[in-house]
Design a protein around this nucleic acid. Structure first.
Length: 760
DNA sequence: GAGCACTGC
């Protein structure tokens, strides 16, 4: 990745071999003209040399331009950023862009942008803010004439960063990856010519860890700030801080209309610009009485719409995979009955949730079935979806939305240190977003399965930001790495609960990533380099001590992707049998490793995965993650070693390495069930385990709270290892009197006696 | 003997 300095150094070198023609003019005949005199290439030379007396940007003074000037430059004929002649396609797209509502406010935007360091911009979907505002910034901020700086625009999701970058590259008539590019995990599509970069907010955060002042940017645009992802919240705190130390940095916070004042207030009363959206009105209907069974009510409502409303597709929001599959089955059965009894058209139902393979997700875009007879009652499709359709996926043609008012949300309980998913009422903002999905192509209707008074009085305004609902161990490590020493006084927009913060600090201290004063240790600094949870990072970094870093590298990658084993509804038994083929008697971690090794030895991987009920996507993903982690290890000079497979200690070493990261996630057998050490929670082993033999002590990867408390992905370990690998954590006298303490003391005695024998 | 809202590095 190139820093601003690199870019400065690289530029002059680049022009040498191309004295006669600039880089992307390959088909052009060699010109007699000295390229440094070519006004259209003026931007390729450092600002101090550039006079910009001619060319499309003639007379443009940084932060002193107008919409009129920019419009003239945009009208061509030459592209002010690439020097090329504009294509016909460019002018076609330009016509469309000028038809958006936002250009009318270009001057208003420029004035505000020029006057203030930080501004807030709110606009509904369809306003074009994500594609247009960054371009407006380019024409005024002129980052390429300002020491080759860049303009960044962050997105919460990878697909958004990619697709918007592609769109804007087309709008600006440049090749994607040149003047306009994107940067997401596993893919950096930028070059030394890039002046506008779309990126995920997590990616910008990563960059900030090595460049605390974000020096390579002259302007940072945080888009979709209302979503309040963890990364967005940390970035906002960071940017507020950086803004003071870098008066030259411009910041724009973009958000949907809600909560604008909160953003303004947080950024020292930054000015606000509101741009209108382009959506159709949506009529809202409430139920007169509260519904007792929202699933039943939802299905009933869908059928009523189908029987009585004019043409248009339906979107129903439910909470999870099982519920959605169930609802689809019931809807199909009811529609069949309805068709027999009444004069209605056909209706096709589609399930939509994140873990569905992409191919199946795509099916929701199939057109609705046609009516049975021309002019008869309309055919329709109904998409039954999780929250994924609220933000990540938009489906055109939706006219009716059915909103029961619930979604699964992550909650964190710092007292028992457990993150879990809970079906909870949605917020007003969420309800509005859902309703908006009905008005994308024409006026629509939204049926809320709750009363108007419940909406007004019971729903909270905004969903709580993620930072208030998460374990913050990773976040605290990131903040420390960002150079923020005083976490207590860090200016969060919504400060997390002190107990959550304390838990995170405590966890990092146990992992030896923070010392007793709360400072980053050498191990902590290394751990922060990895895009992993602290426990995984520590396990990986210490694995060479157990002679198995190659294997732990694979395992770490496997543990950081979801859903390795596939278990289709109609083939569970077969899937379970297949899983047994890979089972290792000591537990699930080693089983996953067996899967990975078998996968790597396979030639036709997709077919092999189908046959063995494994997710090809997950394994491929794990492989990508592994490559990324391996590069980081090589950069940090962490050794990659293996124990010879024929050695008896091959698997034992891996289990010990597991303990070095997960010693806080250990459970001990207590009668029929297990008890987690330290927290004393009664837990059961998740039924998905391959472990069959009796095991007194287990290390587990996650605690899942569903119908019962489960520990999932478990491996058998020996208590001696705990004393050996984490002596500070497993000091028996720190434990309350009880079975765990008794066992630890027994183990200590055993070790002592054995050592005494050895000494004799 | 059961589940996996959604993202991101």
């Amino acid at each position: 990745m190139s820093t601003a300095e690199d870019r400065k150094r690289k530029k002059p070198q680049e022009k040498e071999p191309q004295t006669n023609s600039p880089k992307r003019h390959k088909s052009e005949p060699a010109s007699e003209i000295d390229p440094s005199k070519n006004p259209y290439l003026a931007h390729r030379y450092p600002a101090e040399e550039s006079k910009d007396d001619w060319g499309p940007l003639a007379g443009f003074k940084r932060h002193n331009t107008t919409a009129k000037m920019a419009n003239i430059a945009e009208d061509g004929p030459f592209n002010p950023f690439s020097g090329n002649q504009f294509s016909d396609r460019y002018f076609n797209i330009l016509k469309g862009r000028r038809g958006l509502p936002i250009p009318a406010q270009r001057d208003e935007f420029l004035k505000m942008f020029q006057k203030s360091q930080i501004m807030v911009l709110v606009g509904e979907t369809g306003s074009g803010k994500t594609t247009q505002i960054p371009q407006y910034v380019l024409f005024d901020d002129l980052p390429h004439l300002n020491g080759y700086k860049q303009v960044a625009c962050t997105q919460p999701r990878r697909v958004a960063a990619m697709s918007v970058a592609k769109r804007v590259a087309d709008e600006m008539d440049v090749e994607l990856g040149q003047e306009v590019g994107y940067s997401i995990r596993f893919e950096d599509k930028t070059s030394s010519s890039t002046i506008l970069k779309y990126m995920t907010d997590g990616m910008l955060l990563r960059e900030a860890m090595h460049d605390h002042l974000l020096e390579r940017y002259s302007c940072i645009i945080l888009d979709e700030a209302h979503e309040r992802t963890l990364a967005t919240d940390i970035l906002m705190g960071l940017l507020k801080n950086v803004a003071e130390r870098r008066p030259d940095l411009k910041i724009i916070i973009m958000s949907a209309t809600l909560d604008a004042q909160k953003f303004q207030h947080y950024f020292n009363d930054a000015p606000l610009l509101a741009v209108p959206g382009r959506t159709h009105p949506v009529e809202i209907y409430y139920t007169p009485e509260p519904e007792r069974d929202y699933l039943e009510a939802a299905i009933r409502t869908v059928l009523q719409i189908h029987a009585t409303e004019p043409e248009g597709d339906i979107l129903l929001f439910l909470t999870g995979e099982e519920e959605i599959d169930d609802a689809c089955r019931k809807i199909n059965a009811e529609v069949d009955m309805l068709i027999r009894e009444a004069d209605v058209g056909p209706m096709k139902s589609y399930a939509l949730y994140g873990t569905l393979p992409p191919q199946q997700q795509q099916r929701i875009f199939e057109p609705a079935p046609p009516p049975f007879k021309p002019g008869g009652p309309p055919g329709r499709k109904v998409v039954v979806s999780t929250n994924i359709a609220e933000t990540s996926l938009t489906i055109d043609g939706i006219v009716y939305v059915v909103d029961p008012g619930f979604s699964k949300q992550k909650v964190y309980n710092p007292r028992i240190r457990v993150e879990s998913l809970l079906v909870s009422p949605i917020s007003k903002a969420s309800a509005q977003q859902r309703a908006g999905r009905a008005g994308r192509t024409r006026p629509g209707k939204c049926f809320r399965l709750y009363t108007e008074s419940a909406f007004k009085k019971e729903l909270i305004d905004q969903t709580y930001p993620e930072i208030l609902r998460s374990n913050l161990a990773n976040t605290v490590l990131e903040l420390k790495k960002l150079g923020i020493d005083d976490l207590v006084h860090f200016d969060f927009m919504d400060p997390p609960a002190p107990e959550t913060m304390m838990r995170a600090l405590e966890e990092l201290n146990y992992l030896a990533c923070l010392d007793d004063e709360g400072n980053l240790t050498t191990l902590g600094k290394l751990a922060a380099e990895f895009p992993l949870d602290p426990a995984l990072a520590v396990m990986l970094i210490t694995s060479p001590e157990f002679f198995c870093s190659n294997e732990i590298l694979s395992l770490t990658a496997l543990l950081s992707v979801p859903q390795l084993f596939v278990r289709p509804l109609n083939n569970r038994q077969r899937a379970d049998e297949m899983k047994k083929l890979f089972a290792h008697e000591d537990g699930d971690h080693l089983t996953m490793l067996n899967v990975y090794h078998a996968f790597k030895g396979e030639e036709n991987q997709p077919a092999w995965c189908r046959e063995h009920f494994l997710s090809y996507r997950a394994l491929q993903n794990a492989d990508n993650v592994r490559t990324q982690l391996q590069r980081i290890m090589e950069r940090l000079e962490i050794q990659l070693v293996s124990t010879d497979f024929s050695e008896k200690s091959y698997y034992e070493n891996i289990r010990k390495a597991l303990v070095s990261g997960f010693f806080m996630q250990v459970a001990m057998k207590n009668g029929k069930a297990y008890t987690t050490v330290k927290d004393n929670q009664d837990v059961l082993i998740h039924p998905s385990t391959v472990l069959e033999k009796e095991s007194q002590w287990l290390v587990y990867n996650e605690f899942v709270l569903t119908t019962k408390s489960f520990i999932r992905t478990v491996t058998h370990i020996r208590p001696e290892w705990l004393l050996d690998i984490a002596p500070g954590y497993y000091d028996a006298k720190d434990f309350p009197k009880g079975p765990v303490r008794t066992e630890l003391e027994k183990t200590m005695d055993r070790v002592r006696k054995r050592n005494a024998l050895k000494r004799r």
